[in-house]
């Protein structure tokens, strides 16, 4: 560990809630170090927010490092491993702003920081609203996270646990890819962001029809435990399977799913990269959720 004080890690995005959330983060907490990660591509779209970041950093005189993450998955993992595991460049107290962080990155960082026994906190800013038509599309092949691909046993069949989101095609794609014997759909409760219509469990169940046995459970990612108890209870019901788990729903469910993983390291953590993200993904900034891992 080379740095002292508090560390904040965020992912550069063009969304309002990224820069406005960052401003709130930096004005309410005295961070000594700020690591800004960025995925390749859409630099023009992110430029405005990046300039704002630099301005704030200069004003606040924070140690800053901009880390550009390559598109290649193995290279991306190795880069983050080098920085946050081998060199261990953060301080003991780390906050992840997961607002615009992909699940893959959230879990990767949690794995490094958890193994280094850091004090991990997280922040998440909801938007005012999501785009009503689409958020991401052209999903790529589902991937198991490096070092989190579970323990597969020959004697067991496969089961898939999906915390569903707005995109039923993602559910269909996961089922088509893994061909599980059982699918457990974890459905978010509540009416926020038109959830009941866009994340209707019947729609998700329909896309699995004829291919696999489907069971459903409910969770609330916006509750204190972000649905951890529900997820854990659901996982206990499919212990006799080789389980692949994924979070496609509210971002906070990525936290609770990872916590479940730490208690069930035989499960494989899966994410589905998307090739396209809507430039009008969201607007504004809404409620904030903070917690300690």
């Amino acid at each position: 560990m080379k740095t002292s004080g508090k560390t904040l890690i965020s992912v550069l995005s063009w969304e309002d809630r990224f820069i406005r959330g960052l401003m709130v983060d930096l004005s309410t907490t005295s961070y000594k170090n700020f690591f800004l990660l960025s995925h390749e591509g859409r630099d023009k779209l992110k430029e405005k927010n990046y300039r704002e970041v630099k301005k704030i950093i200069n004003e606040k005189k924070i140690n800053f490092e901009f880390i550009k993450m390559p598109n290649d998955r193995a290279k991306r993992w190795k880069l983050l491993e080098e920085k946050f595991f081998d060199e261990d460049i953060t301080s003991k107290n780390v906050t992840l702003d997961i607002t615009t962080m992909r699940r893959e990155t959230i879990w990767t960082l949690l794995s490094f920081f958890n193994s280094k026994k850091k004090n991990i906190a997280y922040t998440y800013y909801q938007p005012d609203y999501y785009n009503e038509f689409w958020l991401s599309r052209e999903p790529d092949i589902p991937q198991l996270l490096f070092k989190h691909s579970g323990i597969t046993k020959f004697s067991k069949k496969s089961a898939l646990l999906i915390i569903t989101g707005f995109d039923t095609e993602r559910t269909r794609q996961l089922v088509n890819h893994y061909e599980p014997e059982v699918v457990l759909l974890g459905v978010q409760r509540g009416k926020q962001f038109d959830n009941n219509a866009r994340n209707n469990f019947k729609l998700h169940k329909d896309v699995c029809k004829g291919q696999t046995t489907v069971k459903t459970f409910y969770l609330d990612a916006y509750s204190e435990d972000h649905g951890f108890k529900s997820i854990n209870s659901a996982l206990n019901k499919i212990k006799r399977y080789n389980v692949i788990a994924t979070s496609q729903g509210p971002k906070l469910s990525a936290i609770s799913l990872y916590k479940s993983f730490l208690q069930n390291t035989e499960i494989a953590m899966c994410y589905v990269p998307a090739k396209q993200y809507n430039k009008d993904y969201s607007k504004g900034i809404g409620n904030v959720f903070k917690g300690k891992f």
Binding site: L144, G150, Y178, N242
Partner: peptide
């Protein structure tokens, strides 16, 4: 799932 593992690429 065994054939989905890709730690070999690291």
């Amino acid at each position: 799932p065994l054939f989905e593992k890709n730690e070999y690429s690291l």
